[in-house]
Write a protein that binds this DNA or RNA. Structure first.
Length: 595
RNA sequence: GGUCCCGUAGCUCAACUGGAUAGAGCAUCUGCCUUCUAAGCAGACGGUUUCGGGUUCGAGUCCCGACGGGAUCACCA
């Protein structure tokens, strides 16, 4: 049993014994004892005073005595102002290191012990390359998937590809006009970059047309509606919806270029999906459900044929679900997508949508609408909302060229990793492929850790010039210490040292920070899973690593003063590297063996 | 204007769901590599947790009100 749970139940029994009053175990607040006091765990006794009818101090004294007298691991106590500090038997920790912490999947709940959850993330538009904002999204969704898996859920990772609509039509129009048959091969360019180039070209040409019209005396609003480029894009969308062969053909071609480009980027990022949904497949399903809801009187229709939902009773507004001409809006296809997913996976307990906080209103509406349509799963949908990544000069604007491109940024990280490694010269024995793998892992760790260590719901600042460091509280720092630990374990093996089957030494004060860190992993996983918050795992990885790094500095492991001490340190090192690897895996960060 | 989120060291971020003297990294300064990887360790400096009330044994954390920043409120996605 976990120590804190054990202490709670021991405390409940002891309390009843002392005071004749039963209190539920979870009413005892057990926490880590602060460093400046003696002891390992602290029970806060202020809330107990009214049940014991004694002052907090006196309550703590009686409780402490009873706990020491009990069967549990408490061997001593002291009381400071209502705080009962408990000393845990030192052998408890060495036994724990050889038992619970020793198993391969330490920290993880058994696979499939919790219901199936679907996690959606990424979900890009197919008209431009992925950028920094997508990186936060992808890393977050991917990490949450792994955390939920570690908490025992079966997890299905999906994305909804926004493959249809006016945005892709814009790229198509510009490519027809200016492209002269250019392809990713002839341009020597990634497909997503090429399509993005035409999206920008569209915007520039369109702005020029509008400006010309305004110069000719037309007002701005009208000019932006009547510029030939935009009319052509709208016509292209109409043709697409009618299934026009040429239009659909070009749409397929250009989307396939984008997918090839994305595929490359996803592989570099180290994220993957179990299933892809496409809006072009789901918007009609959504429309059917909306029309069905209309028939059943859940929604209402205005004179022009548009379908609306009235959410004023829920504190929201009226919201459009279907245009007057019967075509779908964003909401329509999201209804279709959600329902299709529950149909595809009948055992699905929950859906998690990893989408930026600018869409909070949208998801509030979506979940309410699903509920009105009579789907009980509506309550099991969760919008994992996260804050924007801001640049020093403000928001990223693709039209103003201030976006930080995902591919470029990752390459830059790899480059920095290479420079540092080559200067240190520690990889000289490895061939180019193996070196490249190290650079990628180190560089990617810097990026992922940087984006994941911040509470998802908060906006975060990214300064391209200064932001991503390889020293201090960073991914590479964590990797570096993992590598140190692994290096020791390899050396031990090479010297013929076997992992001890039991420990004869007990943990001392110097060891406790590291041991407590390892010990916390299961709680951290549970907490981050229930709050969809990888930053808890990231911060745990860092704190644990710091404890090891500090310990490593002045405690020789292989050259310890005696065999018992060496064995103890060797086991701690093994538990450290192993639990750290688990934690980093939950962040989607792969660890190198040397760097 | 309505709703929601955020405000902690010069900067970027923590703080176990209300607990003891609010912690890290960067930056600045001081020590430490013949020894398991110095992408490291130890230390110094740095705070009226935006402000004002309230709740209670106890508030960065909960409530109310200001102020500052962001998001959103489309027949856009």
């Amino acid at each position: 049993m976990r120590l804190d749970l054990l202490l709670q139940s021991e405390a409940a029994a002891a309390f009843e014994h002392c005071f004749g009053t039963a209190i539920a175990p979870d009413q005892f607040s057990v926490q880590m004892t602060r460093k400046e006091f003696a002891g390992d765990r602290t029970i806060v006794c202020f809330p107990l005073a009214r049940h014991s009818k004694l002052a907090p101090d006196a309550t703590a004294e009686r409780l402490g005595e009873a706990l020491v007298a009990g069967e549990g691991p408490v061997v001593g106590f002291n009381v400071v102002k209502g705080f009962l500090n408990l000393e845990i038997q030192a052998s408890y920790w060495s036994e724990w290191l050889m038992a619970e912490a020793a198993v391969e999947d330490y920290g993880r709940q058994p696979a499939d012990s919790a219901p199936r959850v679907m996690v959606e993330y990424s979900s890009p538009n197919t008209n431009k390359p992925l950028h920094l904002g997508h990186l936060r999204n992808n890393f977050l969704g991917h990490s949450v998937s792994r955390i939920l898996e570690a908490a025992g859920h079966s997890v299905t990772k999906v994305q909804i590809v926004n493959d249809r609509g006016i945005h892709i039509c814009k790229s198509m129009v510009a490519w027809r006009k200016f492209g002269q048959g250019e392809t990713p091969e002839t341009a020597g360019m990634k497909g997503d970059k090429l399509v993005g180039k035409y999206y920008v070209a569209f915007d520039q040409a369109f702005k020029k047309e509008a400006a010309d019209l305004i110069a000719a005396g037309m007002d701005k609003e009208k000019a932006e509606k009547e510029a030939p480029m935009i009319l052509e894009a709208q016509e292209t969308l109409r043709l697409w919806e009618q299934g026009d062969a040429d239009t659909v053909g070009l749409w397929r071609t250009m989307n396939s270029w984008v997918y090839a480009g994305f595929e490359h980027t996803y592989r570099t990022m180290g994220v993957e999906f179990d299933k892809l949904y496409y809006e072009s497949d789901t918007y009609l399903i959504g429309r059917d459900h909306v029309l069905d809801g209309l028939q059943r009187g859940v929604f209402e229709q205005t004179e022009d044929g548009a379908v609306w939902v009235d959410l004023t009773e829920d504190g929201l507004d009226r919201k459009l679900l279907l245009r007057g001409d019967g075509t779908a809006v964003y909401m329509t296809q999201d209804i279709g997508t959600a329902l299709l997913r529950f149909q595809d996976y009948p055992d699905l307990d929950r859906q998690v949508y990893t989408v930026g906080n600018e869409q909070e209103y949208h998801f509030k509406v979506l979940f309410l609408v699903l509920g009105k349509l009579g789907f009980p799963q509506a309550e099991r949908c969760h919008h994992l909302s996260y804050g924007m990544v801001e640049l020093p000069e403000g928001k990223m604007k693709s039209r103003e060229g201030t976006v930080v491109d995902a591919d470029d940024l990752m390459e830059e990280m790899f480059g920095i990793a290479r420079e540092i490694a080559q200067e240190a010269g520690k990889l000289d024995g490895l061939d180019d492929t193996a070196q490249r793998e190290v650079f990628e892992r180190v560089g990617l760790s810097a990026l992922k850790y940087f984006l994941l260590k911040v509470d998802p719901k908060k906006n975060m600042m990214f300064d391209p010039k200064a932001s991503i460091d390889f020293y201090g509280n960073t991914g590479p720092f964590i990797l570096f210490n993992y590598v140190r630990g692994r290096s020791i374990l390899r050396k031990a093996q090479a010297e013929g040292l076997d992992m001890p089957a039991s420990l004869t030494m007990a943990a001392g004060a110097d060891e406790m920070e590291l041991i407590e860190g390892i010990h916390a992993l299961p709680d951290v996983i549970a907490e981050s899973a229930s709050t969809y918050n990888p930053s808890l795992v990231a911060n745990w990885c860092y704190d644990l690593t710091k404890a090891f790094s500090s310990y490593y500095q002045d405690h020789p492991i292989l050259a310890a003063e005696d065999a018992a001490t060496r064995d103890f340190r060797l086991v701690m090192t093994a538990r450290f590297t192993h639990s750290l690897k688990t934690g980093m895996h939950l962040l989607g960060i792969a660890l190198p063996e040397r760097m």
